[in-house]
Design a protein around this nucleic acid. Structure first.
Lengths: 176, 176
DNA sequence: ACCCACATGTAATGTGTTACATGATTTT
DNA sequence: AAAATCATGTAACACATTACATGTGGGT
């Protein structure tokens, strides 16, 4: 499993606390890998046990210590060897398609409304991605290499949402 | 969670054993909802406890009884009320994008080879879907309504694979 | 002789979700 | 005065994966 690796990847950028990581899993990385803060804290404990990360405790007035997690050299090597290995295709679980599979059990309108609703949601997410694209990645060729990789993950998000949108439209048309 | 509902959906077609269901989760439905046979057997136990399915034991010479699971009226009603409720967007976990996020940690070729490999896998899956499309859904407008729903799930599969393919090509081009 | 399909399951482990818990500071 | 943000965690439960287990019949 690669919640492990998703965390290590984030720590290559800079040392972070569990809290910081949780926020990243809510935004950028969260677009293709989700994790709750509880998962992250538990995983950080394991990573520390394996010596893939080191903790730096930062005392804070009237709060629990902030624990800054640093990637160790061992952790970095582990990450690199994971990156060098082929990974499986992801397996998705699409509740909407389960519904579609038995669409004839409910009135047509129920399905059409659900399709419209998803159409809306994907429209909004696509707009969000396109906005990020315009503001941060206007000229992809000119980007430094690290940014090109980030750009490509965004491009996948855009393709993903656009594909859903197109499909919703096709479905609505066929069923209307 | 909707492994529950995926199973109920399959049982609307006809009564099936756990083994039969497992096979379907390997093919058709498995394209958008995966489940191992162990998950299915456990879930069937729960469905029975809720009286959403009924078991018909079929004795077989020299083998364990085949347990045919029938959808009950109660089960059907439960399924319908689930279908009437809006469902969440699925959240995917894409290991390949985690890799891409930190692509600069490894030599360019490692990433390019992985992209080529995924390009191949998606090409094959797309060809498989297109083949099913041509053989079973040549004329979508003329299909009976149940088949139109099945057709639409296939269309989503085609879109999904085509989107991955396009992205792989874009990524390979940008990084080359 | 060996493997595959049929047909079911237990057990252990790993992952993910939800609820609960604490307590200060900043914003509304 | 209430709510949100910062910052961490425990505990219980639900769901998923992997390995192990059993035993027949048919094909190569």
């Amino acid at each position: 499993m690669s919640l492990t690796h998703a965390i290590l990847v984030l720590l290559t950028d800079c040392a972070q606390s569990g809290y910081d990581l949780a926020k990243q899993f809510d935004g950028s990385v969260g677009f293709f890998w989700q994790a709750s803060h509880q998962q992250i804290y538990r995983e950080l404990g394991k990573l520390e046990a394996q010596q893939w990360v080191e903790v730096e405790a930062i005392a804070q007035a009237g709060r629990p210590d902030k624990k800054l997690y640093h990637l160790t050299e061992l952790g970095k090597q582990h990450l690199i060897s994971w990156m060098e290995q082929p990974c499986d295709l992801s397996r998705t679980r699409e509740a909407l398609l389960v519904k579609m599979f038995a669409g004839n059990l409910v009135p047509r309108d129920v399905i059409l409304q659900e399709l419209e609703r998803h159409h809306d949601l994907h429209t909004k997410q696509l707009a969000l991605y396109r906005d990020i694209e315009q503001r941060h990645f206007a000229n992809p060729q000119a980007l430094p290499i690290e940014a090109q990789f980030r750009y490509l993950t965004l491009r996948k998000g855009i393709g993903y949402e656009a594909d859903w949108l197109a499909w919703c439209e096709e479905a609505i048309q066929l069923l209307s």
